[in-house]
């Protein structure tokens, strides 16, 4: 029984509560991202958008979710039942897993304990994110494969090749950033950007940011890179055979992915929970944490808006254009960016 006493139960509890909060928060944000998406789409097209369910249509996501729950659940006879169910589950799982290493804010002081607002500050945070994000394509692949339908399979193939192509450029653009920071821990990267006299990483890596941003959009399967679910070419792509909440999971995972990749972009390039023009060290720790969380979420929401803004502006890429951009454009640019950064770092040493 001794080992039970050695476990820090308060630590255990505090992490459990933090996990619950983060998961709930990302689900709620993803839910309202669907509402925001429809509203922004409507506004950009001179429409009003959903406005009937509740004031300003604020209950629309609930109505949509409820509708999905009550829909008939169809599993096609010719599909592989196990994989068919695993597809959306995996998509959702990988979308949710990424938020474990993101630093949502600095420490808060509660009940005499100093609680960091990060589930796990592992020293290979970025590597972990990359590992999980590249697992995300399995959700698409398995869903497309298990449906046993040529359109779904085609879409899944597109999704897989797209993610592979863009992950490369994304990784290389990140290497340049990591050469500057010298750390893979997201917490350390944010703290570096918060130091006095140090700007956000966007100032040092504008090209790297651009490449990373474009690749993140491709990884999220967002327009203009939404080839895997091209509604009008592939009949909704890999989730064509899905119905009810399994379809909902796929759609939902996309919004969670968008939220998480916005969080990653903000953490890496825009100072994470750093409120600009405010010196956090002068505030009490709890106040500083609150300001930090607010700043972090404000930046995330701005990025989610930009994601949507781009989606409702640009048409979809053709498949060859997508591959050309990935292999002939972004990878070369990322390589050049990496080499130049390395040369400058060497020169300044």
């Amino acid at each position: 029984m001794m080992f039970l006493l050695t476990i820090d139960w308060a630590f255990f509890l505090e992490k459990l509560i933090l996990i619950a909060i983060v998961i709930t928060l990302s689900l709620v944000i993803a839910m309202y991202a669907t509402y925001a998406e429809r509203k922004i789409a409507a506004f950009m097209q001179d429409r009003i958008g959903p406005n009937r369910a509740g004031p300003f249509g604020i209950l629309q996501p609930l109505a949509d979710g409820m509708k999905l729950f009550f829909k008939e659940e169809i599993i096609p006879n010719h599909s592989n039942r196990f994989l068919f169910i695993m597809g959306p589950a995996l998509a959702m799982l990988t979308a949710m897993m990424t938020c474990a290493v993101i630093p949502w804010g600095n420490k808060v002081e509660l009940f005499g304990r100093s609680i960091p607002l990060q589930i796990a500050d592992i020293n290979i945070g970025i590597l972990y994110i990359f590992a999980v994000v590249s697992l995300g394509v399995y959700g698409i692949m398995i869903g497309g494969w298990a449906s046993n339908n040529k359109f779904s399979l085609l879409a899944a193939m597109r999704g897989a090749s797209q993610v592979i192509s863009y992950e490369l450029a994304m990784g290389i653009s990140l290497i340049a950033l990591l050469m500057l920071t010298g750390s893979l821990s997201l917490k350390t990267i944010v703290e570096q950007q918060m130091q006095a006299g140090h700007f956000w990483n966007i100032a040092y890596q504008p090209l790297g940011f651009l490449i990373f941003f474009i690749c993140a959009m491709a990884e999220c399967n967002r327009a203009p890179f939404d080839l895997p679910e091209a509604e009008n070419e592939l009949n909704m792509g890999y989730h064509q055979e899905y119905s009810s909440m399994k379809l909902g999971f796929y759609l939902f995972a996309e919004y969670i992915n968008m939220f998480i990749s916005s969080a990653v972009i903000v953490t890496l390039f825009f100072g994470g929970y750093d409120m600009p023009f405010v010196n956090e060290t002068l505030l009490t720790p709890n106040m500083a944490a609150l300001v930090g969380v607010i700043a972090f979420f404000a930046k995330i929401f701005i990025f989610i808006f930009i994601f949507m803004w781009i989606r409702w502006t640009l048409p979809r890429f053709r498949y060859d254009q997508l591959m050309n951009l990935g292999w002939k454009g972004l990878i070369l640019l990322a390589l050049a960016n990496m080499l130049i950064t390395a040369a400058i770092i060497l020169y300044r040493m």
Binding site: I40, F43, M44, Q45, D46, R47, I48, W309, I310, W312, T313, L314
Partner: peptide, 19 residues
């Protein structure tokens, strides 16, 4: 060109809706 397109869509957000 993309930025130009995005300014156009942004401007449309504040236009009067004919609904």
């Amino acid at each position: 060109a993309i930025l130009k397109g995005m300014t156009i869509t942004f401007r449309h957000m504040f236009k009067k809706k004919p609904t």
